[in-house]
Write a protein that binds this DNA or RNA. Structure first.
Length: 630
RNA sequence: CGGGGUGUAGCUUAGCCUGGUAGAGCGCCUGGUUUGGGACCAGGAGGUCGCGAGUUCGAAUCUCGCCGCCCCGACCA
């Protein structure tokens, strides 16, 4: 039973904690040393492992991949966003992790492992404590039974910039040590406001995170591009179709970033793209060519005029009779609070604010102002607000008035008078509006012209499975992570950070690859690649043939699961389709009499009858062919 | 955090409106008959009806509070 083991086992796998002898004398290593290491074990039989399949899916599962995770016996739920990986699910995690390691190593990244529990001071000293604290689980000190202090002594790590940067600060001080890129694969903890869809958005999840450190900006861009390349290779090897889109850097900060997205209706993000030009961006970041760069400012079309609009507090009401001001002829004024100070955003009446784009304004935290806050600031209630010079009660109290470029398309329009029940018409953008800064703040809509080709943009839902950030020096400056160059000059390290949701990738693969009968695993990530179904486990001849088929598949490099259960054939076939192993080899008394067994791919319908005499060669060829495609 | 649901056996659920012995299917256990796409027969085990108060002679059912879970929104490194 041993051939094939040596070939497939990862070099160095014996750093694992457990090794034992199996009946028959072949040894194998099962390595789980705090983290997840892949291992090859010899043929496992269904009755020896634990794959609790379900006919019906639990009622709290909504989407296909979540149902299949549960039905195929890959995971079980502990609580909202908290899941146990059962043996088959863990194997997939290990396979994905191993592919990830190989692609990271190929690009020169170095694996390490950082603690899950972080002293809170590291976060306090970092640049985003205010924003990050809300999503972190707090840990009472040392479980001594006392009530939690107002501020926790420890937090559970949602990510590791605050941990790796101080480490690198003390360990790397010379340009000679650069570049470096450290990565780890481990559990992350985030207090998601709303966990959902199984592993898709969980409170605790498995992530690969990497952090690059370079001497120069150019070198950092090169590191970034290497990671981007590694991500493409990784997802492709996992059998997952992804597209890289320009993305918002969010609280992470930094100069630019790309997300790796899996198009799927159940995704949490919208991606905006144009097939012709190749433009693609997260909706939070996406821009359109709606406003021509050479658009001349409109000339005033008349003198400012206040008019009464009793009870009109919405765009729609002003668009209706008797006013008939089309939404795209209105200026919409929104009040926000950024780091404690109010500011205004001006948009066209027909446009929506893309809140993420406010990140460009430099605030750490921002939120819509409450109606109670708005009235003292503006002198009017929401619905009658505007930014016409002279109507603002106290412009000095504002952190700024930020206008979206698209209001230039309005030219002359209507806006609130900052007096309840009154609006102003003939408002000219250049002449009348008090604007401190222009920007892109609106949400792009499908059909708007692509900024590059001018073709209509499309929008689709997608799942974010990976994200690469060029961070710059935000963290290194804050933590004082500097190095000395060959001219004895000191500089902050230029950083990048790179995440892959391993557990989310697992579920995204299922979401992208399933049918009415169950999962269809891509070869490279299948918990096992070959399922040998023994329909007559009591028959020694059938068992013997199954053993031979399994050994042949293993020798060719496949992981083999043998269904040796005393179940009826129908049950076994249904379960086989459900757990979705790529290649099924079926042995039954009926075929055995004819001297054949059956070979069937999970992706197809065709059942190929193979003479027993050709077993070894046919199985080996099938395995090699599948492995070659993967 | 707002809105809407929901909680009955391991899973899927009926019963709740209109209070009166908690039921079914799947799964599980025993025996038998079966054996190539989720078998059949017979028998059996398994329930503090989410938790806590209240109303009532009597509560799965009505009332109040709490908790869990799901969906929508907000939020999301």
């Amino acid at each position: 039973m041993g051939q094939g083991l040596g070939a497939g086992r990862r070099a160095g796998a014996d750093i694992g904690v457990l090794s034992r002898a199996k009946a028959g004398g072949s040894k194998y290593i099962c390595a789980v040393s705090g983290e997840l290491f892949s291992c090859r074990a010899p043929m496992k039989s269904w009755s020896q492992t634990f794959i609790p399949t379900l006919k019906e899916s639990p009622s709290d599962a909504e989407i296909a991949s979540h149902k299949l995770l549960l039905r195929a016996g890959l995971v079980r739920k502990l609580g909202g966003g908290l899941y146990t990986y059962l043996p088959a699910g863990l194997r997939v995690v290990q396979k994905i992790s191993q592919i990830c390691r190989e692609e990271m190593d190929r690009e020169g990244a170095i694996e390490l492992a950082m603690p899950f529990v972080h002293p809170v001071d590291h976060w306090r000293e970092g640049p985003r404590w205010a924003a990050a604290r809300e999503i972190m689980y707090r840990v009472d000190h040392a479980g001594d039974g006392r009530r939690p202090p107002k501020e926790p002594e420890f937090v559970l790590g949602p990510t590791h910039e605050e941990i790796i940067t101080p480490l690198v600060k003390t360990e790397i001080t010379s340009y000679r040590d650069l570049p470096k890129n450290f990565y780890q694969i481990g559990t992350k903890f985030r207090n998601e406001i709303r966990p959902r869809y199984g592993l898709m958005r969980a409170r605790e999840f498995i992530m690969k995170d990497a952090y690059s450190f370079d001497a120069t900006d150019e070198a950092a861009v090169a590191s970034y591009n290497r990671m981007k390349r590694a991500y493409g290779a990784f997802f492709s090897r996992c059998g997952l179709k992804t597209i890289a889109v320009e993305a918002d850097t969010g609280v992470m900060g930094g100069s630019f970033s790309h997300e790796f997205m899996v198009p799927a209706p159940v995704g949490d993000d919208d991606i905006v793209y144009c097939e012709e030009s190749g433009y693609s961006a997260n909706r939070e970041k996406a821009t359109s060519g709606l406003v021509p760069p050479d658009l001349p400012d409109a000339a005033p079309d008349g003198a400012l005029e206040e008019f009464a609009t009793p009870g009109v507090v919405t765009i729609a009401a002003l668009a209706a009779a008797p006013y008939h001001v089309a939404p795209d002829r209105q200026f919409k004024t929104l009040v926000y609070v950024g780091d404690g100070k109010p500011f205004l955003v001006v948009l066209r009446g027909c446009d929506d604010l893309e809140e993420a784009k406010l990140g460009a304004l430099g605030f750490q935290l921002w939120r819509p102002a409450t109606p109670e806050e708005i009235e003292p600031i503006m002198g009017a209630k929401p619905g009658s607000l505007g930014t016409v010079r002279g109507t603002l009660r106290n412009p000095g109290a504002l952190a700024g008035i930020f206008a979206d470029h698209a209001i230039r398309l309005v030219g002359n329009g209507t806006t609130g008078a900052n007096r309840d029940g009154f609006h102003l018409r003939h408002v000219n953008v250049t002449r009348d509006l008090a604007i401190t800064r222009w920007g892109d703040f609106r949400t792009v809509r499908a059909g708007e012209p692509d900024p590059q080709s001018g073709r209509p943009l499309k929008i689709a839902r997608a799942i974010e499975v990976g994200h690469v950030f060029k961070l710059g020096t935000k963290y290194s400056e804050k933590f004082g992570a500097i190095y000395t160059d060959d001219q004895k000059q000191t500089h902050p390290l230029v950083m990048g950070c790179y995440g892959i949701g391993i557990s989310r990738t697992l579920q995204a693969i299922i979401e992208q690859s399933n049918d009415a009968d169950g999962i269809i695993w891509p070869w490279a990530v299948a918990p096992w690649q070959v399922l040998v179904v023994n329909l007559d486990p009591q028959d020694p001849a059938a068992s013997e043939l199954c053993r031979r088929l399994g050994e042949a598949a293993e020798a060719a490099g496949a992981d083999v699961l043998l269904d040796d259960r005393s179940e009826r054939p129908g049950v076994k076939f249904k379960d086989a389709d459900l757990i979705g192993l790529p290649l099924r080899l079926t042995v039954g008394g009926k075929g055995l009499k004819e001297g054949i067994f059956e070979l069937k791919w999970r992706t197809g319908k065709e059942v190929r009858k193979v003479p027993v005499a050709e077993a070894a060669t046919v199985v080996a060829a099938a395995v090699r062919e599948a492995a070659g495609r993967a």
